[in-house]
């Protein structure tokens, strides 16, 4: 369960304060946040995962008030409860795809399972690239591998930031299908932030962000 109230944020004292609509999303559901560049989409996503602190308002994730967490506990909470998919897939380049999939477990102090990682990659159709370096994968393959990484540790929330903007129509469809399917498999809540109108009609639960709505209140 995700719930925000009266959330506002500003980057600096001389910056405009951004106000965000209240969001709620029950466990296992999907929420689409749609908005153009400059509408504060990424800021909102970073607020939700605790990378940024709101200047006012509250964020509750699975009943946990994020403002109560700090430093190491926040890092751990984010690492274990959330999986993130970015616009451009990034990896630790010196490690293989399979080793990159071990990172979420390792960094939160849990035992990694390479069988599960391999199975997940197989499901996403990139199993044959498990022992390659990330840069040896195509953009679409990288994005699928990054979905595997976001889900490997069975997070309760998956946050996707423009997951399809670098993909063509066909890949977009495939990647979104896989993302939803895999999130459903681990029972994770899926939050997608995008300006990609192709995704608009896929989700009934959606919030449109626009510069005016977020800044002027």
């Amino acid at each position: 369960m995700i719930a925000t109230q009266q959330m506002a944020f500003r980057y600096g004292p001389d910056q405009v304060e951004m106000h965000f609509p209240d969001l709620t999303c029950p466990d296992g559901e999907q929420l689409l946040l749609l908005g153009d560049s400059g509408s504060g989409k990424t800021t909102l996503l970073h607020l939700l995962c605790g990378l940024l602190r709101p200047t006012q308002g509250t964020i509750h994730i699975n009943g946990q008030d994020l403002s109560q967490l700090n430093g190491r506990t926040l890092d751990r909470f984010r690492g274990s409860q959330m999986g993130m998919v970015f616009q451009k897939a990034h990896f630790v380049q010196s490690l293989t795809v399979l080793e990159n999939l071990a990172l979420p477990h390792f960094l939160t102090g849990q035992q990694a399972s390479s069988e599960r990682a391999q199975a997940l990659l197989d499901n996403l159709g990139v199993g044959h690239k498990a022992h390659n370096r990330p840069q040896e994968l195509s953009v679409g393959e990288q994005q699928r591998a990054s979905i595997a990484r976001a889900l490997i540790h069975r997070p309760s929330i998956v946050l996707a930031d423009e997951p399809t903007s670098a993909l063509d129509d066909r890949s977009t469809l495939a990647v979104m299908d896989l993302l939803e399917q895999q999130a459903a498999e681990v029972g994770a809540t899926l939050i997608i932030v995008t300006h990609d109108q192709r995704l608009k009609d896929r989700y009934s639960r959606r919030v449109e962000l626009n510069p005016l709505a977020t800044t002027a209140r």
Binding site: C49, D75, R78, H90, V92, L107, T108
Partner: peptide, 8 residues
């Protein structure tokens, strides 16, 4: 990226 995955 590693920070988002839980690294301190």
């Amino acid at each position: 990226l590693m920070r988002t995955m839980g690294a301190s």
